[in-house]
Amino acid sequence: MGEAIVITSGKGGVGKTTTSANIGTALALQGKRVCLVDTDIGLRNLDVVMGLENRIIYDLVDVIEERCKVPQALVKDKRFDDLLYLLPAAQTSDKNAVNSEQMKKLIDELKQDYDYIIIDCPAGIEQGYRNAVAGATKAIVVTTPEVSAVRDADRIIGLLEKEEHIESPKLIINRIRPHLMKNGDMLDVEEITNHLSIDLIGIVADDDQVIKASNHGEPIAMNPNNVASIAYRNIARRILGESVPLQQLEEENPGVFTKIKKFFGVK
């Protein structure tokens, strides 16, 4: 029996889809059977990030409306031998095409076959959100170090705490820019974690490669040397129950010249 984890944030554009794709990929790299479920009906894009868009035949609404069986709609990622699947969202309907009970039934069915079901939640707190959390047993809240994103994360955590079938949510702080954080121009990790008072499961640095990889339909987690990739892999290991220390996001050691300047207090 698998675990269903919903990836949510409240605010749009903080990286829910990227996070879903990469956590799914990282879990598959660890040898787990993973099914990604895109619940953003009408605005799907997890398939694009995964590079699976051109293989979609049926989608989530087809499954719910029983136009096909669940396995028929699942898109297999050939880069992973029978480990990673995607259930894409429909592009032609909207969020009201599905209700929470139908979603719960579907996720329960998927739990029989997969170790992890990663549910990518749409932005907002309306029907789409309710559908995404209906079948989940765990939740990960994604936020960025911005006041607006943290505010929405707080709201979402409040809503998630009311859902009795979901364990206390975990936090990912995404798109961290170490130099801004160091200068105090960005909320720092400790501040955000204290404010939201939930467990931190990972921090991810803002990295150009993430965008590049997404555009190529290749989740960054497949690249073993990238800083963000390591962050996602660490998160996957923490989901599996390992205890992995937080990444150090400080930039490389400053050169001798910088050290001397710092010594004399020159900026």
Binding site: D154, R155, I157, S197
Partner: peptide, 25 residues
């Protein structure tokens, strides 16, 4: 408990809150 953004807690008498009231709460 923590009163998070969007949550409203109302009591008829005095309130002793062991926790925070976050912005928006």
């Amino acid at each position: 408990r923590i009163i998070r953004s969007g949550q409203v807690l109302e009591v008829p008498g005095d309130l002793l809150l062991i926790g925070d009231v976050n912005p928006g709460g």
